[in-house]
């Protein structure tokens, strides 16, 4: 089964003033990504640019609305994702547990819906 691991957390996972913390976090994510690849479970995964770069699009009554900013203002933001293929939820949860993002934020684990015949 495929699962999307969404890394959700505060806008700033670490204090940018502490370059060492940032470097440690980057290193942890790189090692995590490598471990996922080597285990053969990773399909895709990327960090996202900060929400200051987000643009939101809606079409209402035939009119396109383009707005600066994320779809919802909240403290918790999607910071990155991994798409993985593993046998079951427990395996997905064990990968989520190892994600460095779980240390400061939360990992939402969502199964990918399989559309029959598609």
């Amino acid at each position: 089964m495929q699962y999307l691991l969404m890394i959700v957390g505060d806008k700033e996972p670490v204090d940018k003033a502490h370059a060492d913390d940032m470097k440690n976090l980057m290193g942890a994510f790189m090692a995590y990504t490598r471990a996922m690849r080597e285990a053969g479970v990773m399909i895709a995964g990327d960090p996202l640019q900060p929400i200051s770069t987000a643009t939101t699009v809606r079409v209402r009554d035939g009119k396109t609305q383009v707005l600066d900013g994320p779809f919802a203002e909240s403290k918790e933001q999607l910071g990155g994702y991994y798409l993985i293929d593993v046998p079951d939820l427990d395996t997905a949860l064990s990968w989520a547990e190892r994600c460095p993002g779980a240390q400061y934020g939360a990992i939402e684990v969502r199964p990918i819906m399989v559309i029959p015949g598609a």
Partner: peptide, 8 residues
């Protein structure tokens, strides 16, 4: 069923 909770 949908989240794949295993019967392990």
């Amino acid at each position: 069923r949908d989240a794949g909770v295993p019967f392990s």
